[in-house]
Nucleic acid binder design. Structure first.
Lengths: 339, 339
DNA sequence: CTGTTAGCGCCTTCAG
DNA sequence: CTGAAGGCGCTAACAG
């Protein structure tokens, strides 16, 4: 196989020849670190322009052992929560002159492991990751040892201690439940994502804790943990509404469930109190507007990225575990009294 | 500055020493291309496991002149249209064992140029880009010459001929307008993004063409071109509603305007026919549900990526200019009769 | 201020 | 089947 023509991109050597100076002098001019006599600098610059030379970052990076690139592995880039987070990470990376490699693990632990290896092999300087449930922790531990800084977002990883940025899932959900309790509700259902997900589990715990604090007996029949994207989940939710002694309010555990609940209630013509965890677009324009406990995905991304860059800059302080608050936004649906 | 310890990641040389074979033999085992005697292969594999060796992709890429990485530059990763597109690109890239570098140009032509240079310097094999308005075409042309395949999405680039995937903005908007005409409207407003944007301009033209075909006299007072995110745009929109002989229907030119229009109409308590270009989440759950002309951002991303990979695989056929259709989805808001 | 030498980690000749 | 030598493009270390 031919070594790929790679077109004819000029190298420093070409520039050096044309300007009739040494390779190193070109390097000095390009990087502007050391001083070069004005005469030669001008010749070099002219040669650079003439040839359209641009420094080959790959070669530079191989030499320096750094890539000026960080990686981001999330569940799903198409999910508004993660795309907002990714945008914030990108902005911080850009400010630090780093590029961003983004990948979605799609909740598949094997794929997540492969992505970590793939990004790592490309020599990223750091990695921000939402660890997929069921990942082999050794894959991540290996990164830490390989000198690649690691920050977890949205969930911690089992068995790997690294900087972590997450949201106060329990406290936020509990606040949502208390809001419904204050409106007079006593039978509040919790509708969350698959029980295997960390955030879903934490939010369920927050829900239970708030009920317990209020002295309300726990009723597991009011808890539904299921994938909001699965068709059968809709029926499970409707069954929840149709049982004897049905709930008068719903705490939905993420925005995908909130959206689905809104649609299902709408089809039913049912009006029942609702508070959703995680805000979503147009929640304020629905009828009634949906009250939510809002996270700040951009803040999660920004803090994670800033933490990562502080590590890359040499900060060797103790591991940080940052927990961001979640804010209740009353809009109408959560203030309805029980029927 | 110390040359960064880069921790102690083992190299092929380390593996070779431990297995007591030559560097080249390790290379052969790692890449599995040429055959190696079983005995040595076993020793090498054991050494690889023991050291936790993983091939340094950077070095490999420098040698081979390919990075197995493609770049994607869009306006804003946090915008649902672009994040969905990006997700689709990522999926195709993953299927081709390529990583994806993502960057948002934030509508800033200088930033977009810097991003192109930055990604290009990292040696990406191909680039998918939504060219920012006002970019220097030479920056992009240079990529083509440097042997980096280029695909434009969502808009074409001036002065640079490359593969392009875009949506039928004119036809889609015209279909939306015809839908409103069929419901009996004669005074239809067009509310689009800043006039300098390609898609906004195309949609405005589609709107005008549909009116002309229907024999309706053009009224430029019914056209508003403004940034949907700017505060003053809201007032401009309300002024449109308050003028003498106001419109009985609105064609909104993108999803950000649609969302804003929905909110403004809601605040006003006004009920007026509406069709939006580009679908958005929960459009079906609003009151009334919003009729839209839907694009398929995932299809745009997928086709662009597939086109790019076919080029990388050696397809040297003529430039392709793919135009995807847009689909009218009637939901209620566009079927209202004029008052 | 300038140039030479060496080598980052790997792959590709080309001899054994 | 195996190994030695050379180089991808660049930068660090050391001379002049």
């Amino acid at each position: 196989m031919t070594p790929l023509p790679r077109s004819t991109r000029p190298t420093m050597n070409d520039v050096a020849k044309l300007a009739d100076v040494s390779l190193k002098t070109v390097s000095r001019v390009v990087n502007g670190t050391e001083s070069v006599s004005a005469a030669k600098a001008v010749r070099v610059e002219a040669a650079i322009r003439e040839l359209g030379f641009r420094r080959n970052e790959q070669a530079r990076q191989l030499r320096q052992g750094t890539t000026a690139t960080i990686g981001l592995i999330i569940e799903d880039l198409a999910d508004p929560f993660y795309s907002t987070l990714a945008r914030a990470v990108e902005e911080v990376a850009h400010a630090h002159h780093h590029a961003l490699l983004v990948s979605s693990s799609a909740e598949d632990p094997r794929r997540a492991e492969a992505l970590v290896r793939s990004l790592s092999g490309r020599g990223i300087d750091g990695l921000i990751i939402t660890p997929a449930e069921g990942m082999d922790p050794r894959v991540l531990a290996a990164e830490g040892e390989a000198g690649c800084s690691l920050v977890f977002v949205d969930r911690p990883s089992v068995d790997v201690d690294a900087d972590t940025v997450l949201v106060d899932n329990r406290g936020g959900t509990a606040a949502g439940v208390r809001h419904l309790l204050a409106a007079g509700h006593r039978r509040i259902a919790f509708v969350g994502d698959t029980a295997s997900l960390y955030t879903a589990q934490e939010r369920r715990i927050g829900y239970l804790e708030a009920l317990e604090t209020a002295g309300i007996e726990r009723d597991d029949n009011l808890v539904l943990m299921a994938n909001p994207a699965a068709p059968e989940s809709g029926e499970a939710f409707l069954a929840l509404l149709d049982r004897d002694n049905p709930p008068t309010a719903i705490l939905s555990g993420n925005n995908r469930w909130s959206v689905r609940v809104v649609r299902l209630l709408r089809q039913r013509g049912a009006s029942i109190a609702l508070v959703g965890f995680d805000d979503f677009e147009l929640a304020d324009a629905l009828e009634p507007p949906v009250s939510v406990v809002a996270q700040d995905p951009a803040a999660v991304g920004r803090l994670a990225a800033e933490l990562l860059f502080s590590r890359l800059a040499g900060d060797t302080g103790p591991r940080q575990h940052i927990q961001l608050g979640a804010t209740l936004i009353p809009r109408g649906s959560g203030e309805r009294a029980p029927r």
